[in-house]
Amino acid sequence: MEKESSTGRKAVSAEQSVSQTRSMKKILSGDSIFKGITICFALSILFILLLMVYEMGRESFPSIRQFGLKFITSSTWDAVAEDFGALPFIYGSVISSLLALLLATPLSVGTAIFVTEISQKRIGGIISALVELLAAIPSVIYGLWGVLVMAPWLQRSVQPFLIDHFGYLPFFQGAPYGVSMMAAVIILMIMIVPIITSISKEVLMAIPQSQREAAVALGATRWEMIRMAVLPYGRSGILGAVILGLGRAIGETMAVTMVIGNTPQISLSLLSPAYTMPSVIANEFAETTTRMHSAALMEIGLILLAVTLLVNVLARLLVWSVTRGTAGGGRIQ
């Protein structure tokens, strides 16, 4: 009797211990640890993004408090007197990016249409690969070419020609320096063509073939098909591609820094040197001596961050609205 009960108890405790080890195993099992690790790494990406925004905000706080709104309306930039206004840099960034976009958009969309709608598939593939090559060249190499080849060429031949023939326009006044707003616009244009082209191409390829067939069946020529069936369908996606190009142009640092002349002035003339937000950070940030100087540069960085965040979110929503539902839809590199 006693024996029996003891074995019974033993059985119970054994069962308990088994279930205990089982639950322990479950907690410490490879799978849950693994899940924990992957979730930590995944969350760290979100953490990095928030940390970046927080750090930029914190570091620029002295400047925000000191200058307030005056920071974006004043064009004084005096590191000695610690008086900072970012207007010339904002002006330079906005004008150079918008002009580059104006030139790059027709070229890029034209190329994307040529590749997807007009050329043979094989030739289209080769052109796409070449355009991707253009995207792979590092910014600093564009800058090298820009400052040693393009700027001297502009100074020697293009700018004197513009001064001689169009000098009465406010856009082409002053001396030919070579390094100028114009040089920055051209370099930026070359650099953002690949991104607008490749995303536009992706958008156009996501448009259902039936759209095209319907237009052609009604007797449309190829151009009419493109204009009536393809472009309206892809409009918002192409707009997204253009906005992404804008984001790239605003944040572009090295190539622009090397060719824009780095002079904080607001001038209508495309021939005069200018300055952009990333360029002033690149040139001055490593050599700041006062806290206010580095805070002012941080605030410029914060503005840049805010603008690029806004632009990217908007563009991604637009592109996604067209390419969703197709394989690899909405994936943007």
């Binding site: 995944a42 969350l43 990406i45 979100l46 990095i48 993004l49 940390l51 970046m52 750090e55 930029m56 570091e59 992404l244 984001g247 605003i250 944040g251 572009e252 640092t253 990333p278 950070i281 690149a282 940030f285 540069l297 941080m298 960085g301 840049l304 961050l305 690029t308 965040l309 632009v311 990217n312 979110v313 991604r316 943007i332 590199q333």
Partner: peptide, 28 residues
């Protein structure tokens, strides 16, 4: 929902100008 947020964060991170990444690494 968490994965779409993380995906979105990665895409946004990808669009941040590289010079800002440098500034953050500087402060950190």
């Amino acid at each position: 929902k968490l994965s779409s947020i993380i995906r979105f964060a990665a895409d946004v991170l990808n669009g941040i100008p590289s010079i800002i990444t440098g500034m953050v690494a500087y402060t950190l």
